[in-house]
Protein backbone atom coordinates (compact mmCIF):
# COMPACT_ATOMS: atom_id res chain seq x y z
CA UNK A 1 0.00 0.00 0.00
CA UNK A 2 1.02 3.55 -0.58
CA UNK A 3 2.52 5.01 2.56
CA UNK A 4 0.86 8.25 3.59
CA UNK A 5 3.22 11.17 4.10
CA UNK A 6 2.81 14.80 4.94
CA UNK A 7 2.06 17.17 2.12
CA UNK A 8 4.91 18.72 0.19
CA UNK A 9 5.34 20.60 -3.05
CA UNK A 10 6.85 19.46 -6.30
CA UNK A 11 7.16 20.92 -9.79
CA UNK A 12 5.03 18.86 -12.17
CA UNK A 13 5.62 19.80 -15.79
CA UNK A 14 6.74 23.22 -14.64
CA UNK A 15 3.83 23.88 -12.27
CA UNK A 16 4.17 23.92 -8.50
CA UNK A 17 1.68 21.43 -7.07
CA UNK A 18 1.05 19.86 -3.66
CA UNK A 19 1.11 16.12 -3.11
CA UNK A 20 1.04 13.63 -0.27
CA UNK A 21 2.27 10.75 -2.36
CA UNK A 22 5.74 9.42 -1.73
CA UNK A 23 6.55 7.73 -5.04
CA UNK A 24 6.45 8.69 -8.68
CA UNK A 25 4.05 5.88 -9.45
CA UNK A 26 1.57 7.11 -6.83
CA UNK A 27 1.94 10.70 -8.01
CA UNK A 28 0.97 9.72 -11.55
CA UNK A 29 -2.18 8.06 -10.23
CA UNK A 30 -3.00 11.04 -8.01
CA UNK A 31 -2.58 13.51 -10.86
CA UNK A 32 -4.63 11.59 -13.40
CA UNK A 33 -1.95 9.86 -15.45
CA UNK A 34 -2.72 6.35 -14.21
CA UNK A 35 -3.27 4.70 -17.59
CA UNK A 36 -1.73 7.33 -19.81
CA UNK A 37 1.02 6.43 -22.25
CA UNK A 38 3.71 8.71 -20.85
CA UNK A 39 7.42 8.76 -20.08
CA UNK A 40 8.89 10.34 -16.98
CA UNK A 41 11.95 12.11 -15.64
CA UNK A 42 12.76 13.37 -12.17
CA UNK A 43 15.20 16.24 -11.74
CA UNK A 44 16.36 15.82 -15.32
CA UNK A 45 17.03 12.10 -15.11
CA UNK A 46 14.94 9.50 -16.93
CA UNK A 47 12.91 7.18 -14.72
CA UNK A 48 11.79 4.06 -16.59
CA UNK A 49 8.21 2.94 -16.05
CA UNK A 50 9.38 -0.17 -14.21
CA UNK A 51 11.20 2.00 -11.65
CA UNK A 52 8.41 4.46 -10.90
CA UNK A 53 7.04 2.51 -7.93
CA UNK A 54 10.44 2.57 -6.28
CA UNK A 55 11.21 6.19 -7.12
CA UNK A 56 10.80 8.22 -3.93
CA UNK A 57 9.84 11.87 -4.26
CA UNK A 58 11.18 14.77 -2.24
CA UNK A 59 10.13 18.34 -1.64
CA UNK A 60 11.04 20.54 -4.60
CA UNK A 61 11.54 17.72 -7.10
CA UNK A 62 11.11 18.64 -10.76
CA UNK A 63 9.03 16.00 -12.53
CA UNK A 64 8.47 15.77 -16.26
CA UNK A 65 5.62 13.72 -17.71
CA UNK A 66 5.72 13.64 -21.49
CA UNK A 67 4.06 12.00 -24.45
CA UNK A 68 4.44 12.08 -28.22
CA UNK A 69 3.64 15.21 -30.21
CA UNK A 70 4.07 16.69 -33.66
CA UNK A 71 7.71 17.34 -34.44
CA UNK A 72 10.12 18.24 -37.19
Amino acid sequence: MEKSTSEFRIHLNGESVATKTSTLDALLVEKGYADAKVATAVNGTFVPARNRAAKALSDGDHIEVVSARQGG
Binding site: L12, N13, G14, K31, G32, Y33, A36, K37, V38, A39, E64, V65, V66, S67, A68, R69, Q70, G71, G72
Partner: peptide, 12 residues
Amino acid sequence: SLRREQARGRTG
Protein backbone atom coordinates in the same frame (compact mmCIF):
# COMPACT_ATOMS: atom_id res chain seq x y z
CA SER B 1 8.72 15.15 -30.60
CA LEU B 2 8.08 14.68 -26.90
CA ARG B 3 6.15 17.33 -25.03
CA ARG B 4 4.58 17.68 -21.61
CA GLU B 5 1.31 15.78 -21.25
CA GLN B 6 -1.53 17.38 -19.35
CA ALA B 7 -3.06 15.56 -16.42
CA ARG B 8 -5.93 13.38 -17.57
CA GLY B 9 -4.86 14.32 -21.09
CA ARG B 10 -4.79 11.80 -23.90
CA THR B 11 -3.32 14.04 -26.60
CA GLY B 12 -0.22 11.92 -26.93
